Simulated scan of single mutants.
Amino acid sequence: PRPVPAYPEPAQRVKSLVIAAGKNSARPVQWREGSRPGSGRSGHKRMYSRFVALRIRPAGREIRKATAGSGLPVRWLLAEWPADQDEPVQFWLSNLPETTPLPVLVRTAKLRWRIENDYREMKQALGLAHFEGRTWPGWHHHVTLVSVAHAFCTLQRLTRSPKETASA
Rank of each mutant, 00 (worst) to 15 (best):
Q12E: 14
P37C: 01
G38A: 01
E80F: 03
N24T: 14
V14P: 04
A20W: 10
G40M: 02
V14M: 12
R46D: 08
I56G: 08
A53Q: 06
P58C: 05
P8W: 07
S25R: 15
I56S: 07
A53H: 06
V18R: 13
P10V: 10
A11E: 08
P58I: 01
S35Q: 03
S16N: 15
Q30L: 11
R13W: 06
I56T: 08
K23Y: 12
S35L: 04
K15V: 07
A79V: 02
A68R: 13
S42Q: 11
E80P: 04
S25G: 10
S49A: 10
V52E: 01
E33Q: 02
A66G: 14
Q12L: 14
R50D: 06
V18P: 13
V29C: 09
R50A: 05
L77C: 03
A53V: 10
T67V: 08
R32P: 00
G34C: 02
K23L: 12
S42Y: 07
A79I: 02
K45P: 00
N24Q: 14
L17H: 15
R27T: 15
I63A: 08
P73T: 02
A66R: 15
P37E: 06
V74G: 00
V18Y: 11
Q12G: 07
R41C: 01
G40E: 01
W76R: 03
E62D: 09
T67N: 10
A20I: 09
S35Y: 05
A66E: 14
G38C: 02
Q12T: 13
R36C: 01
S70F: 03
G69C: 03
G69I: 01
E80I: 05
S39K: 12
A79T: 05
V74Y: 02
A20C: 13
Q12N: 09
